[in-house]
Design a protein around this nucleic acid. Sequence first.
DNA 1: CCTACCGATCGGTAGG
DNA 2: CCTACCGATCGGTAGG
Lengths: 214, 214
Amino acid sequence: MSVSRSERRTRPQTVARREEILKAAMATFGAKGYNKGPLTEIADQVGMTHAGILHHFGSKNALLLEVLQYRDATDVEALPEHHIPDGADLFRHLVRTAFLNAQRAGIVQAYAVLSAESVTDDHPARPFFQQRYTTLRGEVAHAFRVMCQEAGVDEPTTVDKAAASILAVMDGLQIQWLLDPTAVDLAEASEFAIEAIVAQVLTPRETPLRRPAD
Amino acid sequence: MSVSRSERRTRPQTVARREEILKAAMATFGAKGYNKGPLTEIADQVGMTHAGILHHFGSKNALLLEVLQYRDATDVEALPEHHIPDGADLFRHLVRTAFLNAQRAGIVQAYAVLSAESVTDDHPARPFFQQRYTTLRGEVAHAFRVMCQEAGVDEPTTVDKAAASILAVMDGLQIQWLLDPTAVDLAEASEFAIEAIVAQVLTPRETPLRRPAD
DNA sequence: CCTACCGATCGGTAGG
DNA sequence: CCTACCGATCGGTAGG
């Protein structure tokens, strides 16, 4: 009986080693960004040389992409039923995520740094984040439509703007919180903003800003 | 009559040259980030060698800080009366800024990339952005208090969260817009979110999210 | 403001 | 998974 290539790749030891590397890479890329996060630092954390990392992942570039996919996969596994909730539950889930994020600065920083870095010229993570935001906006927009339907409201003009805004405010608060954790309450502020945006979609109101001035 | 040191530093030619360099640096740091944006690329844009840049600014680090200060100073000069408006006018100003930003992706990208990069270990721009957000949050919070007072509302519990959220949603939308300009309308979405948050501060409402679930 | 150069960092490859 | 090494990039300095 021969041992196939894919089976060798799947050896428990190798899988475990790769996971160690992925976690170390997340830490280094989170702390220093992709461009400034050296393979040697990742290697040190798992007790090998940087050539060993390249042996496992082929290139630094490929490692980055696996790091991003690994985190997403881990997060999805943590969901009930392994899928994202819908309607009002989605927004409750997002609020809960913000509370969770307030206790894992490392992961928050990795995403914040890498997503912003990804808009630079020819960044390897750009397609990943492009796809990620497209998917997330679609999910949030869908949740909005479900909520509107349940509430008997048919005003979906703002849904797309609101979906982007929900994700945006969560991301933006993370940056401010990472810069100054005592000045910004990540969880409470996220909750407030999400509720504000949801309320504006369901029962839109004019604001004093509407009077044109200046 | 002797020529003082400071006068030499102030020679029109030198000032103009430095401004050229600052603009070129903004372009390079915006396109590639600080860590990956080489002095040679900045030098090429203004027709000198990278040693010439260092002659003018001392170090890459110092150049970055001057770039950030230069942009802020330029923006303040563009304001009516050279100071930031207050009350509802501040929020109108922020909306107008979002519309303006939708037509200057380069500057938007520079701030988005550099602010996120600044949260990494020992980044030279970290104190700058820390200070910047502290100041901006204070100004937005003050505008909220003025608006509440004018409206006869005394509910400032949410003011600080709302101030951070306003800035956050503008920043977060910029990232999504830079990644996918056709999928996100930076100006319209910013306006929507700002109005949603302002409305929630002035006349807060419970939302369907309040029912605890899951 | 340039030429010339140093010192350090870093990703990747060879070859085992 | 390591040793050894290459090739390239880059910030900064000397010395003019």
